[in-house]
Design a protein around this nucleic acid. Structure first.
Lengths: 386, 386
DNA sequence: CACTTATGTTAGGAAGGTTTACATATTCGT
DNA sequence: ACGAATATGTAAACCTTCCTAACATAAGTG
């Protein structure tokens, strides 16, 4: 018996988002979602008419007009005149996000020598920045340094500030509590909460590598699934999977610096031997390069470092079917043979069929990646735009 | 200048779901979401009153009553009498999903000797099953075998069938097209579409390991983030990340069988040497064990296999901060020292701090894991329940 | 036996979206 | 030049979904 169930209404959910539904949805939530949809279209394509937005979102022109009216009242959207095209019909009134209406504060705490922050516009362009030397400060003193850095940036802002984004080293939970950041001597520091209290405006704190991932996603050319390896004083990574950042069961996703790649390697500060960091972290790599007499010797060292990176990443590429890996860090170290070497190793150790289009490259965003990613975080949280 | 932006409405989105908003949301979508919320509560906890549902979902009793009325009309939910408790107030009328009202067809194509399918109830219990020997058939003949298997199961069903779920080996895209399944000689077989055409009811086809992941999620004790390794004729894996299955950029996530773990290993059918499969796939492991004279010799072989699994998984555990790994496959191979060996290797190669609670175990669901996972897939797709 | 507690329903309203119709503004075709 | 065609944006009326407020129901409590 196969029976009739035609009256049964099915969800037809897109397979791939199997999440236990978590919380009720009210009409107003739908409204906010559609508002974000409009903002997203304006943000990425700009110069759209109400009719364009209606076609792009699937909403009716009536609804779009109402949503736009709200956004104009909030000062987020402005009319920018009429479309120049010559064609029949009433000329379209173009709209755009008022990209000067708000500014964003972005902060990068990941450099072990200084804290850096910037004021950015809504396009993620840096308008002004501050660099505060860390001078080996840690613990509460380092927190105070963050507070004064942010205050300095707020003073520099020339428009209302949409929010404050911060990329911190270490393990950071979803509430912006730095669970552990050894270099700064932080353990369970509720940085986000303290900044909200102090400045009374939206603040988001996240791990520096995860923040860098958002920068690539919003301002770079990255795809929807990639891993970003951030090489500096240590080695960390961040992941974007199916278009969403992935934090892991204990908020420690991407902590690949202390994955052992060859047990006969150098002793690492963590107590194990042969961690990826002992080959790839900037201090180790600089030290190794200093021993090299010839350019060939330097290249051999860099090739070996790239190989070890490939050994660590090959299983990850295989397991996640990643199509893109992005490196961020000192260009004089990562700009050379490392990329090709790591790429070769990964290809040799995974199935070509599945990663035929694997792309491994250095980020285009340079030193600003965390600061700009912090701004991207605020843009998403406050406007739903990325 | 810090300005005032109090009139600006912010989204306050939960950081961690940074997805570009994709499509408009209408009131009816919100309705379906809330309906799924109600079904989910009833499915997992059962025997709830309308007032309980209202408290649990945050919706009002009025709204719940209306939603429940719809579900009762569809035949999905029934009143099961009054709560026995002695307490003041009008006695609650208990509701439950009518677990006999619909049945599900689940099919497992992953065994290389036979296709197996079952009729299951809404709780994922197997009511009856069919096993059809594959007899080396492939290509179109294998598709025909699937069709007759499903027809046989539909004939066995004693209640309307909610849908048909299928776990297939190989790479399967989100539309249920088997892009590549070498053992079955399938390349670009639109299995889901063909079954929909033939049987005119909901069908979902996905990779067997991904399907097994759903079984663990819905019917097992798995957490929200884990990797499931499926050992059989080959070695594959599936991932649940942040409560959602992950398919990868090219739908090939989990294909870890041909990740090289030691380049000096045996030659693999894929052409490379030292693939994980050459240590862990059932045929290889059986062959190696056959050469062992003593129980100690057998354990040494299994320990080595576990070690190689650990080598392959350690970078994945590190990169994803996984807290759980589940093995599925022949108990006589996986039930012994492999688990401990793999666990030891992973711990030795990653940072204890981040995986302190790493759990590695064999699945409890045995041979039925794919068939039951296929049912879980249908349950989610049709009812929003898991 | 009135009072309290709790469940479930009825009635009315607010919010968000749609359809339908229209005012507006421009080009196209003769 | 002028009606027809095309396209934008708004106004009015309506549907859906949720809410709040009030109430009927059915038990225990003092």
């Amino acid at each position: 018996m196969t029976g009739d169930n035609s009256q049964l209404r099915t969800l037809g959910l897109p397979f791939g988002r199997i999440l236990r539904p978590s919380s009720k949805v009210l009409p107003e939530h739908a409204r906010m979602h559609n508002r974000a949809l409009v903002l997203q279209m304006l943000y990425t394509e700009g110069g759209q008419s109400r009719a364009d937005l209606a076609r792009g979102t699937g909403l009716t022109r009536v609804t779009i007009s109402e949503l736009v009216a709200g956004l104009v009242a909030e000062g987020l959207v402005v009319e920018t005149g009429q479309r120049g095209e010559v064609r029949p019909g009433k000329p379209a009134t173009l709209l755009d996000i008022d990209r000067g209406a708000f500014q964003i504060v972005g902060v990068d705490l990941s450099d072990h020598r200084s804290f850096r922050g910037a004021v950015l516009d809504l396009d993620g362009r840096i308008l002004s920045d501050i660099d505060l030397p860390l001078d080996m400060q840690a613990g509460e003193a380092a927190v105070d340094l963050v507070l004064s850095l942010v205050q300095g940036l707020l003073d520099l802002a020339t428009a209302p500030v949409l929010g404050i984004g911060i990329g911190s080293p270490g393990i950071v939970d979803l509430g912006g509590v730095v669970l552990s950041a050894p270099n700064l001597g932080w353990t369970g520091v509720a940085l986000q909460e303290r900044l909200v209290e102090r400045f009374g405006r939206p603040v988001i704190v996240a791990n520096d590598a995860n923040v860098a991932v958002l920068a690539e996603h919003s301002f770079g050319e990255a795809r929807a699934d990639f891993l970003l390896v951030k090489v500096g004083h240590g080695v960390g990574a961040g992941l974007l999977l199916a278009g969403a950042p992935y934090f892991g069961a204990g908020f420690a996703a991407g902590e690949i610096g202390h994955v052992v790649v060859r047990q006969t390697g150098d002793l690492c500060a963590c107590g194990k031997s042969g961690c990826l960091e002992t080959w790839l972290a900037a201090p180790h790599l600089e030290a190794a390069l200093a021993t090299a007499a010839t350019p060939e010797g330097r290249d051999a060292i860099l090739t070996e470092a790239g190989h070890q990176l490939g050994v660590a990443l090959a299983p990850v590429v295989g397991a996640l079917n990643l199509s893109e890996i992005i490196l961020s860090g000192p260009a004089h170290l990562l700009g050379g043979v490392i990329v090709a070497s790591a790429s070769d190793t990964i290809r040799a150790r995974t199935v070509a069929e599945f990663h035929g289009d694997l792309r491994l490259r250095l980020t285009d965003l340079g030193e600003d990646i965390v600061v700009r990613g912090a701004a991207a975080m605020v843009l998403f949280r406050e406007l739903g735009v990325s």
